[in-house]
Amino acid sequence: MIEVKNLVRTFNSGDRTIKPVNDVSFVLGQGTLASIVGKSGSGKSTLLSLLGALDKPTSGDVVVNGVSLAGMPDAKLTQYRRRDIGFVFQQFNLIPNLSAVDNVMLPMEFAGIRKAARKQRAKDLLEQVQLAADKHDRRINRLSGGEQQRVAIARALANEPKLILADEPTGNLDEQTGDHIISLLSALSQDHNTTILVVTHDRALANKTDRRFRLQQGKLTEEQVHRAAVPATA
């Protein structure tokens, strides 16, 4: 379970103080698939970075499975990101001179998983996100945007995290692959009890989540979801 308590993040810009996240509070039960929608610059990515311990809040707290992130030392926050969080970034943020498999293996290497085991799991994950086997050993800079997005999703799943934070996970995918990724995320939340929070502009994707939030001028509000059918996984 993830519990967000009065989260505030402010930035100073000259004389002005900007609050992209302004007193945000919500609770997500384990295994929930949720989405955050909002205009560009509304603070979605800032909120995501706070939940993922990439950034520290000005005030407020994030409690994950009863453990507060506030005041946690950097080393523990690194461990939290490694063990409990899977990130899918909007710009993929893969390591360009490594192959797809090597990129997926990275978080497992940091977690201390043996090479053979992490290689096998990386290949399984790449198959799950439907990346052709002949592209597993290809360097990232020789893959298309959609293929890179799938590698990024596979990397986020590598350490079986409790929480996946995804920034526009289907933004660069065609409709069919996008549907598959949604099905995969949905299955993860249901079958593996993984909490998934997706930031998206894709209304269709947002309608397939259990809960939908809207972030506007730093304030978060929950919207009624008229849940659409999630495509069955292949």
Binding site: D74, A75, E109, G112, I113, R114, K115
Partner: peptide, 24 residues
């Protein structure tokens, strides 16, 4: 100062090893 040992003992399916330096 990061005092992590670089491996996450206790996680299911995780195995402690010191071979990650080879990957580095």
């Amino acid at each position: 100062m990061d005092r992590e040992c670089g491996s996450d003992a206790g996680l299911p399916g995780r195995h402690l090893n010191h071979r990650s330096n080879v990957s580095v």
